[in-house]
Design a protein around this nucleic acid. Structure first.
Lengths: 113, 113
DNA sequence: TCCGTAGTTCAGAAATTCGGAACTGTTGAT
DNA sequence: ATCAACAGTTCCGAATTTCTGAACTACGGA
């Protein structure tokens, strides 16, 4: 398995973020991660929405989120822990993530500070 | 020519907006419109960036912006006047447009109020 | 070692995007 | 009225991207 790629904060591009979150399924995954205190695994959301997302698609969604800089993934034993990079992102792109989650009606309670 | 379609403000979807603006070329066009007091035409920016955009692509960019609800277009004689729907959009999705333009480093001076 | 689980990679089908060429609709000139 | 020029749209084939089932890899436990 190839090592996971995470862009440095300064290499994160706004177009990549918008693209990643322009898919409602990915946006829902991201919102769900943002609402989780601790890192969450991939398989935990096989059916976050109405349909069951195939696992190869799920894996790809996580890859897109990771490589756009939205999340950080780390292998832990047999599974993968994922967490958002919200704090870093908000410094680099002030207000962006919050406005997007709000637009989707998915701003998690923790972020309403 | 088919009549131009503009979604009602309540039908505008956040995923469509993010998708439309996830293309840097489209985002640049939108920012340029947002920075214009009056409506602007399509041909006026044949070479907004470094490369010359083919006119069929340009036409398509405007269509994507229009149908996602970001701009309003109106035929005026032989040309087309385009203007952003920023005010409406900001009511529906507070802070979104501004955060996106800021992320791209293209927030026009008029919007820095 | 062998099995089960979590997730990745591969590959072909389907869908989307891109852009040149032809077309439409409007204005102004002859 | 006819013609030409112009702004923009539509069409359509090529290239690219997305989707997902199937095969595969990696790790942990028995």
């Amino acid at each position: 398995m190839r090592p996971l790629f995470h862009p440095a904060i300064e290499d994160i591009r706004p177009d990549a973020i918008l693209y990643a979150l322009s898919d409602p399924e990915r946006a829902a995954i991201f919102a769900w991660l943002a609402g989780a205190g601790c890192g969450r695994t991939c398989s935990a959301l096989a059916d976050l929405g109405e349909r069951t997302i195939p696992k190869s698609s799920l894996s790809n969604h996580f890859k897109v989120l990771r490589e756009s800089g939205l999340i950080r993934s780390e292998r832990q034993g047999v599974e993968m822990r994922n967490e958002t990079r919200c704090a870093e992102l908000d410094e680099r792109f002030p207000g962006l993530i919050r406005a997007i989650l709000t637009a989707y009606g998915q701003l998690p309670p923790e972020m309403k500070d």
